[in-house]
Design a binder for these strands. Sequence first.
DNA 1: CCAAAAGTGTTACAAGTACACCCATGA
DNA 2: TCATGGGTGTACTTGTAACACTTTTGG
Lengths: 223, 223
Amino acid sequence: MSVVAPVATAAVDVACLTVAADHRLLVLLAQARGGPFAGWWGLPGRLVRGNEPLDEAAAAELRDHAGLRGCYLEQLYTFGHPARDPRGRVVSVAYLGLIANCGRHPLPPGDERYLALGWRPVSPLPPLAYDHATVVRTAVARLRAKLHYTNLACRLLPGAFTFGELQAVYETVLGRPLDRRNFRKKILALRLLRPLGRTRRGPHRPAALWSFRTRRPVTVTVL
Amino acid sequence: MSVVAPVATAAVDVACLTVAADHRLLVLLAQARGGPFAGWWGLPGRLVRGNEPLDEAAAAELRDHAGLRGCYLEQLYTFGHPARDPRGRVVSVAYLGLIANCGRHPLPPGDERYLALGWRPVSPLPPLAYDHATVVRTAVARLRAKLHYTNLACRLLPGAFTFGELQAVYETVLGRPLDRRNFRKKILALRLLRPLGRTRRGPHRPAALWSFRTRRPVTVTVL
DNA sequence: CCAAAAGTGTTACAAGTACACCCATGA
DNA sequence: TCATGGGTGTACTTGTAACACTTTTGG
């Protein structure tokens, strides 16, 4: 039914995070071709269409502009400061995205909406359009908190990984080193992992390979 | 700037919770006077105006229709299923509200928007308009989770209270009994409370009165 | 003196933290 | 043989859970 002028419009923005091979935490940024922040880097996002769920709008942004499919997405927070978009009142539902192996998914060079796409470190974070710096910081805080009591780390790792790789993901996200023995003990106690029985050979002693029992979101701590 | 037809509009809904004197968890409901759910009970809420922050829209709903001022509010989740509002595409930013002593704030009888207002138990929850039953369940889950690691309980209690009253709030929200000695030990260890040095006299042995050191949101557990 | 809520300590167990050495491999 | 990351156990501390009796008051 018709809604008159002074109302707020809904949009989605996606803060898609990944851990790079060099153990840096990266966020997917896009350089706007037009709009009030033309030429600026920001998060992929757009207005929500009249008949699509929010989750699908977020997934479509990643798929259509970054070529990322099957990315984990969860709703992060809704940002609605009246002045956040100079064009008018836009309420943005922000999503946290997680993906493993950003290096495996080469980004397209750009398209009609974005001049370019790129993975950038979350610290230092370059100046971003709108309130997107706040969104990225919120996304990192959420990921950091949920690492402690969920299996979210599985979304930042490939299907088979070593304990060293798993620990590197935790250390990167948490921003501090962890004791190797205690880390292994704690993770094994959570019973989230399954040994694959295979090893990865490399320049050093071979490491056992593991996978997560399930990639469905699991909360570990009991209330 | 101008946004054409097929876009989503933003609204706010508030799930305001309180613990009644009889130790039931209640939610503030409003009976719609018009709209697609005329006559139904649901959460107070409306479309967001073009120049107001989301938080203020939520606070205004409580203030203008229920007479509640200074209620604690935090953003809960954003519900955006395309079919949630039969009139068209409305994305609803839901807020969790908390207030002490619902009995002290008599509700107005109704107004131009609502036929009536009332505090109703969250279980069993009556049939509600839109997806508001989901919103209420999400609000209860959030409150339940945050009781463990924040000082949110202070928003459900008056400025001075006994340990028995504090424990009753925890037991009501968590839905299970707690050991009195362990509860006191744990709460005191969190150092959130300040003894007032006064006691409350009643039909039994007088109980010491306490207050929270701060009502600002505090997270207790360290990462 | 009775009913009802307030107040208090100890013990057992689980979980978390700190910490050092040997192993297997490729270069 | 060396450099590098993989793999393991123990002692200590901290937190959590179970549990019963005495005190104070009003009626």
